[in-house]
Design a protein around this nucleic acid. Sequence first.
DNA 1: TTATTTGCAAACGGTTTGCCGATTA
DNA 2: TAATCGGCAAACCGTTTGCAAATAA
Lengths: 139, 139
Amino acid sequence: MSIIEEKCKQKGVRLTDQRKIIAKILSESKEVYGSRDHPDVDELHKRVAALDDRISIATVYRTVKLFEESGILVKHDFKAGKARYEINDDHNHLIDINSGEIVEFVDKDIEELQVKIAKKLGYNLVDHKLELYGSKIKK
Amino acid sequence: MSIIEEKCKQKGVRLTDQRKIIAKILSESKEVYGSRDHPDVDELHKRVAALDDRISIATVYRTVKLFEESGILVKHDFKAGKARYEINDDHNHLIDINSGEIVEFVDKDIEELQVKIAKKLGYNLVDHKLELYGSKIKK
DNA sequence: TTATTTGCAAACGGTTTGCCGATTA
DNA sequence: TAATCGGCAAACCGTTTGCAAATAA
């Protein structure tokens, strides 16, 4: 049973055959494609359809939105107009402006600073989004 | 002459009556509406049309994209599906998750940390996007 | 003058939705 | 069985674009 499927059980999200397959594909994404894998909905649908080609893209959209609302996935709009979803585990992204490659990272210091800044402005930090854009340093 | 109009001259962007009006509205945005003003394209078009109602929304879209490509404006997608543009002066945003209000801020420490992180990952930092989401602390 | 720009309306592309038969708990 | 879900195709909505007339330099 996939990680996402387990989370669905925890959160009382009803599981159907379609949702299990979508959950499986999303759960395995990093194992199969590495941490730089950030498929858009269309790509996700292709991978899902490879396992069961009767699953429509409408179902993928509905499922992915449901998982997001349940806090299982997070949605990204790196390039406006095409959403990408991944498991909600709170990391940041560095996007290579030349190749489009996406590198994930976490940093404790920046995390703490954000909380501090929000507080100073009079807010409790609930969520955050940090994207760095860079070009590879040639050695 | 508005700030944006001046930048157009500097950068050799051809100025038309329509572009001057759009530039004017965008330049005055903060003065008139405060630093929390982040109109979407539709709202921008309304304000522009109040000065000259023959300016079409297609022109607003084209102009705003032109200004972005010239480095005069930056585009934001706080809520996917509706772009917002503002003068490119490199600050960050805190978005109130309850009211939708947007607070601007800058922070030197976080700026430096970002450069350091990018370097550690093997990249030169070219650009960045930081959005904090929070809820107001009640006093 | 001549390349560029604009307004209009139609096209586009990602996403959502109404309907209704199928499936889950 | 009752409530929910999924497939299909049409609708939606922000954005882009082809065309012919208007305009900046």
